[in-house]
């Protein structure tokens, strides 16, 4: 196995957005069972170091493939389309307007201590994101339209962040 192989090759998975999460889990554990430092506690320094590098790589690869957003970013990276987190690619105005509405909704519900409304927003956003991921799967695996896929990933990055903020607001209310 080439240490520089891509993450999909590492786990023997097809290079695609649609992957079988169960197979990924099983392969990850098989790989860790082989390379993990616990297997090399009695080995020489060189073997221990190598084991740490491999186990580190296995963890990194698993993290990159496990979560759909990370997996999409990684696929785009392999295809030569880097979705720079900091790059200020202008988002369409109507998307930004929509974001502002969402945020206002969350802020209002939070200020009013409206737990129910926050849960509702959380649910609605979850639905919207699921639809986006379905679209992303088609863009990445079927039509291989990487330019549009990059745009969708950027949007999803906004939505993920928003979802965290709603989570935060719910936790903050629960802790009061």
């Amino acid at each position: 196995m080439d240490f520089n192989a891509d993450h999909f090759t590492l786990f023997g998975l097809p290079r695609a957005f649609r992957i079988d999460a169960n197979t990924l889990d099983v392969r990850y554990r098989e790989l860790q069972a082989t390379v993990h430092p616990d297997r090399f506690a009695q080995a020489s320094d060189a073997e221990r170091r190598r084991s740490m590098q491999w186990a580190t790589k296995a963890n990194e690869a698993y993290q990159a493939l496990k979560k759909p957003l990370e997996r999409a970013k990684y696929l785009l990276h392999l295809a030569g389309h880097d979705v720079g987190a900091e790059n200020n690619t202008a988002m369409p105005v109507e998307f930004l307007m929509e974001q502002m509405e969402w945020r206002e909704g969350v802020a209002e519900a939070r200020a009013a201590g409206d737990h129910h409304e926050l849960e509702h927003l959380h649910h609605r956003l979850g639905e919207q994101m699921r639809a986006s991921y379905d679209e992303l799967a088609i863009l990445l695996d079927d039509s291989t339209d990487f330019a549009v896929a990059s745009d969708r990933v950027r949007r999803l990055m906004f939505l993920e962040k928003l979802l965290f903020e709603i989570d935060d607001a719910i936790v903050a209310l629960e802790e009061q």
């Binding site: 992957i19 790989l31 991921y133």
Partner: peptide, 24 residues
Amino acid sequence: SIKKALAGRRVDELGNGLEAKGER
């Protein structure tokens, strides 16, 4: 040993109709 652990696996072995799944 890694080759051995991952040996004999083919991409096509994964079968068809895989669904995209999110996190556990």
